[in-house]
Amino acid sequence: MEMNMPPKPKRSSKKLVKRFIISISLVALYLWTFLSINDIIKWDRVFSERTITNFDRVIPKLFSPDYASFGKVMEKMVETLFIAYAGSLMAAILAVPFAFLAASNMVRNKFLNTLGKWILNAVRTFPEIMLALIFVAAIGPNAFAGVLAIGLHSIGMLGKLYSEVIESIDMHVVEAMEANGANKIQILFYGIIPQVIPEFLSYAIYRFEIDVRASTILGIIGAGGIGTLIVISVANRNWNEVGMILLVIIVVVTIIDYLSAFIRKRIV
């Protein structure tokens, strides 16, 4: 039986040359990168006896956590959770007006709309740690600085996600409410909020999950939470305690992730 094969795709010589050049340059780039590693890294120092003894001293201690410090660590972990909770709660509420401003189906004015999007973009550009540095300098090294840093940064992401939720609602419902004489505020409460609330909640919980992880690090620059403890223990070379801290962080974050996924599945 004669087989009817599809025609071979046409290859122009221009395309072939282009591909050839791209592959050659990629290979060259990798070669150059790996060859120059040797000049910078002193391999004999990396694999020296000292490294091995250092490893020997630190790693086993990390794996035998200092259970006696559990109370102290847990206290700080709870503070971390509170920072994350207060920060994301603040953001979950404050993000709403920005989200409406940035949603193109709510604000028809192009200028205001773009302004809203820009504000949210700008807020997201700053990493939490930088915001925390600013707030620590402004209001002193305490947990409130951490809350503000987390909150402000989260507004950027939540506002953006919220505004996408608002843009995806069924506008026909809004039209139906307009058609029966409802005013703008009534439309908001009857037509829009019921459509967006579950997604808003889901994103807020997801953001809390991220904020728990983010706020563990804030203490390193003095913005409260478990990070402070890490800095102190590392400075004291108290590796057993660092081990304990890591263990607590891992367990708590895992539990939070699991709970958050569970709740979010039931909401939407």
């Binding site: 026909h172 029966n180 459509q195």
Partner: peptide, 13 residues
């Protein structure tokens, strides 16, 4: 009053 092709009810309410 108005009635629409796609009913336009708030589905979650």
């Amino acid at each position: 009053g108005m009635i629409f092709q796609n009913y336009n009810l708030v589905k979650r309410s």
